[in-house]
Design a protein around this nucleic acid. Structure first.
Lengths: 137, 137
DNA sequence: GCTAAGCTTAAAGTAAACTTTAATGTCAAC
DNA sequence: GTTGACATTAAAGTTTACTTTAAGCTTAGC
């Protein structure tokens, strides 16, 4: 498959795919007789992994560590340790998000129940104060 | 409080604080007689909000929308709409994180249960294949 | 045979979020 | 009264993750 189709299938730009190759995340694609890159179907899966890992908060360098050029050289323990660190990171972020969400929701409550006679500035101050208290770590 | 102490208290670099001011996230600090920035204690809370919001995946521009320069000019409805959009964003992110976490965990299971007699390449291929399947959106 | 779409490359550009640099000013301590 | 820590500014530099550009092949359709 040529780069355009791979791009279409993964939703990525062809330029991004070439970029990943240049950064060593993708092994150098074989070429057709005309010099065009020729990808095997598995390339879709690899790009999907890259995009998913990115969404999970991995940087391209981290992903590169997870997907070394030579697949057969994966280091069992290092790989597991990395993955476990990521799970821990995700859990930390989840706790954070849950708290922030609760705090934003109580803020919405607070603003919606704003007493009509309370002047704008006081209300704003109250909002700020509540954010300071509730979003605080 | 001067910028150095604010930096120490928030764990941010002074240059970052000046940068936030320049980008309009922080209202322009008042100055001491000597020209040094002078911050009220609340500045710590505001910076904490900024840092928390960032960790939750908000860009500085988004945070700026949440924390306009002139606090007294907050528009009730717009504010609530913004906050509700943020809750929705957080929920989207939560779903994604939950999925990614599950996928990483099943990957760990898979790698840990690697049959001893399975050669490296086959195992790696299995891992890749499973990532394609499991991490897929 | 021509045009348009799609491929190639290297190199430059972009956006976000800062940091670093350089040149200078202030202030507390010795 | 000079050293050293901390402050100021504008401007340039950095990193990440790409995109865009320019200039030039290849290929499919009319």
């Amino acid at each position: 498959m040529k780069i355009g189709e791979l791009a279409k299938r993964t939703g990525m730009a062809a330029s991004a795919i070439r970029f990943y190759e240049s950064r060593g995340l993708l092994k150098v694609a074989s070429r057709q007789a005309n010099g065009y890159r020729d990808y095997p179907p598995e390339a879709v899966a690899v790009l999907t992994i890259i995009s998913d890992a990115q969404q999970a908060g991995f940087s391209l360098d981290e992903i590169k560590q997870l997907l070394p050029a030579d697949v057969s050289s994966w280091q069992h323990d290092a790989l597991i340790a990395t993955l476990q660190r990521k799970v821990a990171d995700i859990e930390t972020l989840q706790v954070r998000l849950t708290q922030n969400k609760a705090h934003i929701q109580s803020l919405i409550q607070l603003i919606e129940s704003k007493p009509e006679d309370m002047d704008c500035k006081l209300n704003a101050a109250r909002v700020i104060a509540s954010m300071g208290i509730t979003i605080d770590k």
